[in-house]
Each structure stands twice: as C-alpha cells, then as structure tokens.
Design a protein around this nucleic acid. Structure first.
Length: 876
RNA sequence: GCCGCUGUGGUGAAAUUGGUAUACACGUAAGUUUUAGGAACUUAUGGAGCAAUCCGUGGGGGUUCAAGUCCCUCCAGCGGCACCA
C-alpha cells in the first residue's frame, strides 16, 4: 500500500473511533458518566495542551499552522501514551477583517465564507493527523459562543472597567472609513492611496491599566519561558516617578488659556533644577486650545497628525517643534521656562507633557541644541547631584527626597506610569460581536446611570455613563443581524447603523425609545477566553462549570506565536483575572496558563517571511500529497529547534523519508511469510548491546519530547536504527543484503517499543506497523474489534539497569587541550566522588604514553579531575 | 526609535547548561550492487600540513585549570510594536 491509501484508511478508522482522542471528564465529580469510566481513567492525571486556535483564512492551513500544531500534537500524543487524561482541543477565531473584506469584495455573507473556511481547515487538520478532540470544537462567531463574550463585556461595564472615550483612529478621507494600522502604507490608504489622517471618535475602552500591577505580579505563578515573561513586563512597562504641576506664568503671555497648571510625568524628579523648558504633545488639550487662535500652531498640528507614533519617536529624525507662546514656572527656583509643542512627546504616555532636562536626556538635548535653549547640569561626573535642595546625594536618594519635597509643596506626588494603555474595544465594522449596550437619550438627560460602581467618581467621569445601559442578560446573545452591505457607512459607522430594527430599541431602564450601540468588538474579545469554553463547550447556563474548571484548569502547556506574547496573552490573562476576582472561578487558580512556550517561525525558501505577495508560500498539504503526511510532520520537526526561526528548504526532507522507509520495509517483511520467518518476531533478545541502545534512546526521546526538543528526539531515533544496524549478527540465518537488520537484533516486545516511540511523530506509519504486528501475533487477516490503537498504548519505560555504563572513557587534557583518553571500569570511579579514586585516576592519566610525552620537562601546577568527565593538568 | 532574539562545516543544525566542538540529516567524492519512477549499501568529508602538530563556533578584549556556553565591546541579520490575527 502506498502512503495515500494508508493515510485514508487510518483517517477513517480514527474518525469513527470517537473515544480515541477524547478528553474524559470522569475526574469531575458532578460529571461522572458511569458508562465511560474504564479501568484507571479516574485516577489519571489531567493534562491540558493548547495550541492557539487559528483565524480560518480563505487560503487554508499554512506551514506555520502545520508546524505549530504538529508540535502540540506530538506533545499531546506523548502525554496520552504516558497515561494522562489529555485535553487537546481546537476551534476557530473566525471574526475579523479579512473575511469582512472578502465578503465586501465578493458580495457574499461572511457567515457562509466562514463555514467554508472552517470546513476546509478541519479536513486539512484531520489529514495531518492532529489528535484534536473534535467533540469540543468552538467558533467565536457562533451566537451560542459569543453570547458569553458579550456577557463578559457586561460584567466589565458593571464593574466600571468599560467606558466611552474620544480616541483617535486612522481615517481615510476618500474612502470615508476608519483603517487598521495594517491598511495604512506609508501614511496612505492601502486601497485608494489617499493621505490618511487621525480622527477622534467616541469609542468603548476597557481599563486594563487597573490590572497593570496584577498582570506583572501574576507572572510569578507561571512557568512561561523567559522571553514571554520579559515581553509582558516590558509591554506593561511600569516606571516609577512623579507627577508634578507647573504653574503657567501670567507674565509675557502671548496667548491666553483656560488652565493655570501644566501637569507632567517624569521618572527623574531629582533633575528638576535642570528643567529649562517644557514640551507638550500636539494632542494635548493646551495645544488644541492654542491652535484655535494661532495659525503657526494649527499648521504644525495638522502636519504631525499624519505621522505614526513610530515615526514620531524615531531618534534619528529631526525633532521639530513650535513655541506655544506660554511660560511655566519651575517650582524649585521660580524660573520661568518656555513651553514648546513637539511630536516627540506622545499624548498616550504619562500626561502627554514633559519637563525637559537637556543635560540628562538625549532627546531633550537634541531639541535644546536645535532651538538654542539653555542646558543646566545637575549631576557632576561622580554622579553626585548639584541642586540646592538635594546637594550631595546620589540619584536614588535624590529621587526620594525630590518626591517628598513635591508632596510637601502640594504640587504633585510620587506615582507610577505605565507603557500599557487602556484597551480600545470598539470597531466600526460588521464582522465582530455586537457590543451589548443601549443608549437612552431620555435617561441621559435625567442623569440616570446603570452603573453603581462609578458613583463615587467625579462628575466629569460620571457624565460619560449617563444614559448607557447593558442589554439585559436574558436577551443575550445579541445576534449580529444580516445586512445588505458590509461596508462601513459614509461617516465611518459600522454597517449595523443602517439597520433600524437593530438600532432602535426600548430603554431597559425607562422603557422609552433608545438606540443600540453599533460598534462591534475587536478580534481579541472572542479569543481571550476561548480556552475556558473548550472545557465546557455546550453549557447553556454558565460560561463554564466551576467543577470542570477546577479539574482541567489551568492550561498546562500553551503553544503560540511570538506575535501574541503581548496583546493576546495579556488581554487573555486580564479577562481571566477579572472574572476570577468576580468570584466566578475556583480559588487557587489565579492564572489561566501555567506554561507558555512559543513556536518558531518558518520562513520561505528565500529566507523571507512567507506571503502571497512574495510568492514564497509553501502549502503543507501539497508537500504531504507528494511525500506523505508523516514525512512532512517529521521533516518540519527535524528542521531545527521548535522555538527557532528557520527557512523551508527541503534539504533534509529526503533524510526523513529514508528513515521512515525503513519502517515501510519492516511492513514488507511482515507481509511476506518467507521473509517473516527469518525475523520470527523473536520473543527473546539475543543481543544485549541492542537493548542497551534501545533503553538509552527511550530515555533520550522521552526527555527531549518533554522539553519540545523534537529535532534531537528524531535524531536519536535515527541514530538508534543506525547503531542497531551495525550490530554483528549470526550471518547464517541472514539472507544476503538485508538492509534493515534492526528488526533482527531485537525481540518482538522491543521492536514494539520503537514503534511506540515513532507514533507521536509519524502516526500513520506507526499505526500501520502496529496493526501488522497485531495481525501476525494473532494470526488474523484483518484487525478485529479487540485491536488497540498504538496511540492508546502506553509509552515505553526505561529499564534503568541498561543505562549503567560498564566502561568509561575519560579524556585527559593538558592545559585544556585533550591529548589522550583513559579507559576505565565503571566500578573504579564509582558513584561518589572519592579522593582516593581521584588521585588514582590522575596517576593513571600521567602514565599514559601520550601524556608522559607532554609532561616531559614541564611542571604540573594544577591537577583537575571532574567526576566522570575529564582530567585536566595545568603545566608550565 | 523602543523591546526582544540570533550568529557554529558547502547546507539545516547538535553540544549532558563551564568539561573530548561539529551528534543527526542534507550535499559532495570514491567504491559495491546491472539499480526504473528524487534507489540501496560501504567508506570518507571543518581548514592547513607527508607527518608530529597547528588553527578553528561573526570581530576584538576579559574571567577560568578549562569558554560555542559567563562578562565587556563592536559588527551583521531577524522578529514584535496596541484597529492584521
């Protein structure tokens, strides 16, 4: 049989065997299904292995997916064989722009397109033999699913963590629509090439910043790889400093403004004496106010609006600013310093205003030099401060004193600033979850608000909530209605605004006519809690059952890409922590993911990121059609480390194919009575060295899979067959030119262990071989109902006694260069470090002829013996 | 710009985490076997040298008995950056 027949055959059998990869809820008391408890199932430890669910794009499963899922699949299969009750689910993150844009272009329903795409993805995944538990499939676009996404938003609103705010978006004046950053190319609209500008619109914002400290602290409870922890910590970007209010001077005022103070944030309040000017961002209230009456400022603001934040903070670019005409008073010395407006100061960080200390900040210095502003040093070369109030202190002491002083003067306080910003939750698009909010004009007029949690906040804050009410929970899900056209409206609103039946509703509070929110949620909304739904996918009454979460949580291993290490992972942890705080989750599970690792990236053969426009996309399915699924899976895992970046070039693919062909040859032998007789599938082991090799390999492969070292696990399987092949065997029973002696140097039971080790990597080949062995053992033509899949078998254990080396080779080095080797009996160097043995070994080493030669005429100054590893003699 | 990562043969990459650098695989060469569809098997394969030996993990410096691994510095490349997901 060729590989296609084998794949088709087993795919069908596995598909029909519904329990093969099914995660079992038997461990959960309230969900015991007596019919399903088998053997020791109840005592199995649980293992939740999670791959990030894909966005089901129209172009199908790409290599990146196949690579990542194969990695997860191997781990899940390995853990299943080790006796874990494994939950390895899959679903679809199906809301989003590409589908929407496709729908607009092709004039098709996104719902239909999504169905087609997910069907395609599912069948491709089944072909690639991913052992997902398909009975738990979820889809973020399913109303039964997004009911709970909406429910989470309501909880956020009720807790005072969701509010409306004017926020800038990219705006294409020609298409009259908001654009994603990705749709803006060099400041121009991707479609019509018109100049893109920033435009403020009122958007729902979620206060993730309330959880900033918690999100950092919680990392202590996780085993995320360091890279991920660092990414999260940097993204949150906590910096300690102070907010300081500067009085705006009344002298020499060119422009009159409504505020008297300018508040800034600085991490270096100790340098206050060196502050010689101030800079505010172009988006600052003060800038906007001044622009109304000052043409120069107005012009500057329009200019900067075109730039992205990245362009603005680019150190290499020329810093350009404009003088505001205002002065502020430096509180430490009452000096008047000018206030400038420049776009290197960002509105989104701190207060959008800084005090400039050109002597101790490169950006400030550059600006000062350009506009000829004074520079005052506050630190001397010894890093001792030179400021009347805090003379002679070092930096940390001075910062502490400065904050105390600011506080005592009543002009500010020590505070933290974060790089993390609140989460803009509104999208003016169709293909997303409708935000379940209702605005009532009548209630707004009467200052009615639903949210009691914000009552303590000031009037200004309160105003934002007047008239806003959540859709009553019993009306969820608020289903996305079908519309005629999917384009946003001319004024940038979501197409939902064109549907009167959707927009018009009754106020849940007073019953008068009200309007629904027409914005939809960002893609992250559905993906930040999906891992919970896999645990309890059909629950009608609750987001998730408490007991089921207690059993399955947290996710033991979460595999995903670096691109999700900040946003998705942070949003997801935030939502989980929030719901946890609401008492919705079992105590003692403060974090959703125990371990997070990131899969690598496969670049195209040209070393570039795969993309349609570059034309370097590899489709895993077509490679599988050519060489077989097992070859593709193994090749991807053998290419390099699972976390690494590597280019797709099929150099080593043939090596993997040759390796797997050795198993196919085994099939030939099993299928042929004459050949079978010489194998005999012996029940006895005649070659002790073969057993030693096998046990070492089992130890190595087990350890490697545990650490995602798939490339080296495969290498040691290859090495095993190579080494077994070299064992000299009784030539009389061997026909000439038998290429694959590994089958003859091991007993049947030990051959089975090799097949088991192959199973996670090459599920089809292993299963086919396993079934042949079963048939031969039981003298059957076909497998019968008693057959147990290799994927349900137990992982081979290591027999420790075979791991002990009888002979030891110790390299002997002179000055760190190996000059000879000392062969020892294991018993000599023993288990423990023993001084007598150490001396003995060094003495023996000195007697070696090659070593003697190197010692002639030299003096030994140091003798090193590292237990069981090496001897080094330092000579002069 | 900010943050993070990587640099080892002709190629993809190993290296027990400070202890014999180059496992495994590709490629190449020679040989065996008259061998259909990217065949199999054996041997060799970092560089220089007849050899003893010397030199070798992006460059330079350092710590150490011992450095691919740790520290400093420089160079090159890659990834992420909040409305793509």
């Amino acid at each position: 049989m060729d590989f296609k027949e084998i794949e088709g055959k087993w795919q069908k059998i596995w598909d029909e065997n519904k329990n093969l990869y099914k995660a079992d809820d038997v461990g959960v008391d309230s969900h015991i299904d007596l019919g399903r408890i088998q053997g020791s199932a109840r005592t199995k430890p649980k293992m939740y292995v999670l791959n990030e669910f894909p966005y089901p794009s129209g172009s199908g499963l790409h290599v990146g997916h196949a690579f990542s899922f194969t990695g997860g699949d191997i781990y899940a299969r390995f853990k299943r064989m080790q006796g874990y009750n494994v939950l390895f689910p899959m679903g679809w993150d199906a809301f989003g722009l590409p589908t929407e844009n496709y729908a607009i272009k092709m004039k098709r329903k996104p719902q239909e397109v999504t169905k087609e795409n997910t069907d395609m993805f599912r069948s491709q995944m089944k072909k690639l033999a991913f052992s997902f538990d398909w009975s738990r499939e979820v889809n973020t676009t399913d109303p039964d699913y997004y009911k709970w996404t909406q429910w989470i938003f309501i909880k956020l609103f009720e807790a005072g963590l969701a509010y409306k705010k004017e926020m800038p978006i990219n705006w294409c004046p020609s298409c009259k629509t908001g654009l994603a950053n990705e749709e803006v190319i060099d400041g121009k609209c991707e479609r019509c090439h018109a100049e893109v500008s920033r435009r403020n619109i009122s958007q729902w914002v979620v206060k993730i910043t309330d959880y900033a400290d918690r999100l950092v602290d919680g990392l202590k409870d996780t085993d995320f790889i360091d890279k991920v922890k660092t990414a999260q910590i940097n993204w949150i970007g906590k910096s300690e400093g102070a907010k300081i209010k500067f009085e705006i001077s009344s002298r020499d005022v060119i422009n009159h403004v409504s505020t008297k103070y300018l508040e800034i944030f600085t991490t270096r309040p100790d340098t206050l004496y060196g502050a010689t000017f101030m800079v505010i961002s172009p988006e600052h209230d003060l800038s906007l106010e001044l622009a109304k009456s000052n043409e120069e400022i107005k012009k500057y603001l329009i200019e900067t609006r075109k730039k992205s934040e990245m362009e603005r903070t680019d150190l290499n670019k020329d810093k350009i600013g404009v003088f505001s005409g205002l002065y502020a008073v430096n509180p430490v010395n009452n000096k008047e310093i000018p206030i400038w407006i420049s776009d290197f100061v960002l509105a989104s960080y701190g207060t959008g205003a800084i005090m400039s200390v050109p002597a101790h900040d490169d950006r400030d210095k550059e600006f000062a030099v350009k506009y000829n502003l004074p520079i005052i040093n506050v630190y001397d070369d010894e890093k001792i401060i030179n400021s009347p109030l805090w003379n002679g202190l070092n930096k940390n002491e001075a910062i502490k004193k400065a904050i105390e002083w600011i506080k005592s003067e009543g002009i500010g306080e020590g505070t933290n600033s974060y790089h993390l910003r609140d989460w803009i939750f509104s999208r003016q698009h169709y293909w997303g979850e409708p935000i379940p909010m209702i605005f009532c004009e009548e209630c707004a007029k009467n200052h009615k608000l639903q949210n009691s949690n914000i009552k303590h906040q000031n009037e200004e804050e309160k105003k934002k909530y007047y008239g806003w009410f959540t859709v009553p929970e019993d009306q969820l899900p608020l289903v996305l209605p079908e519309v005629e056209a999917y384009e946003p409206t001319d004024d940038g609103l979501s197409p939902l605004s064109r549907i009167p039946e959707f927009v018009n509703c009754q106020c849940p509070n007073c019953g008068s006519d009200a309007k629904r929110e027409t914005d939809t949620m960002p893609n992250w909304a559905g993906s930040d809690w999906y891992f919970l739904r896999y645990i309890d996918p059909f629950n009608k009454d609750k987001l998730i059952d408490f007991d089921l979460l207690k059993y399955w949580g947290p996710v033991d291993v979460y595999i995903g890409g670096d691109e999700h290490n900040t946003l998705h992972l942070l949003y997801s942890r935030f939502i989980y922590q929030f719901l946890y705080d609401q008492g919705l989750f079992p105590k003692g599970l403060p974090e959703p993911y125990k371990m997070r690792t990131s899969h690598g990236v496969i670049l195209g053969p040209d070393n570039q990121r795969m993309s349609k426009s570059r034309g370097n996309v590899i489709v895993p399915e077509s490679v599988a059609d050519k060489h077989g699924v097992d070859v593709v899976r193994m090749y991807m895992m053998f290419m390099g480390p699972f976390e690494g970046t590597m280019s797709w070039n099929e150099n080593t693919l043939m090596g993997v194919k040759r390796f797997l062909s050795k198993f196919n040859i085994a099939l030939e032998y099993l299928d042929n009575e004459a050949k079978l007789s010489i194998l005999a599938l012996s029940t006895e082991d005649k070659y002790p060295e073969a057993i030693v090799l096998l046990n070492k390999t089992i130890a190595k492969v087990s350890k490697d899979i545990e650490e995602f070292g798939y490339n080296t696990a495969i290498a040691s399987l290859m090495e095993l067959l190579n080494e077994l092949h070299k064992i000299r065997i009784d030539e009389s029973v061997i026909p000439l030119n038998v290429g694959h002696r590994w089958l003859m140097v091991l007993s049947r039971d030990n051959i089975k262990k090799i097949v088991k080790m192959l199973a996670p990597f090459a599920p089809y080949t292993a299963e086919e071989l396993w079934s042949y062995i079963y048939k031969k053992e039981n003298h059957l033509e076909e497998i019968d109902s008693r057959y147990v899949s290799v994927h349900s078998e137990s992982w081979p254990g290591v027999e420790e006694k075979y791991l002990i080396e009888e002979n030891m080779t110790i390299p002997i080095a002179i000055n760190g260069k190996v000059r000879d080797q000392l062969k020892l009996q294991t018993s000599l160097h023993g288990g423990q470090a023993n001084f007598k043995h150490q001396n003995e070994i060094i003495e023996m080493a000195k007697q070696l002829p090659n070593i003697k030669k190197w010692l002639e005429g030299k003096t030994i100054v140091k003798e090193i013996y590292v237990e069981g590893k090496m001897v080094n003699l330092a000579v002069v």
